[in-house]
Amino acid sequence: MRGEPVEDSGKLGALLDRYRGQPGALIPLLQDIQREMGYLPRPALEEAARALGLPAVKVYGVATFYAQFHLKPRGRHVCRVCLGTACHVRGGERILSRVSADLGIAPGDTTPDRAFTLERVACLGACGLSPAMMVDDQTFGRLTPDKASRLLRRFAREAPDGGGGGGRTAE
């Protein structure tokens, strides 16, 4: 999300101050920023680099190395569709393309209203229930495309901030 202004720079400033001049504290700082802002926006990473005295590219390298860090905003719900071997054989692709079409985004992206982030994963450890997907921390198995659509609509309604609408879920 290039050039996006750092929201709430007051809080970011406090985090940066805590670690200023300590290049060794990169990972804890990134964790704190992500906790505060939900993801790691580019300007925040640039400021983190300055505060710690590290080259921006080092910070970027670390942020992209660990799966726990997200450089794009995350949705309130994270939907992980499995394409592991078992799920693949039993139609995981069809689930993914339906979910992707419903949400109007590609895997790895987040809906503009930040309701959903869509990811593809390689085995959720629920092969017996394939094809499977996870929404937040709940696993759903034996899916059909329609079932997946219904699930998305349910989670959209349950948006924690109560804001209806959610992603562009299919009717």
């Binding site: 290039r2 990473l45 970027y60 992209t64 190395f65 799966a67």
Partner: peptide, 17 residues
Amino acid sequence: AVDFAFRGFATRVTTAF
């Protein structure tokens, strides 16, 4: 100007962002 970014098979040498 450059460093490793991403991980595993996707690892490549690139610039910040």
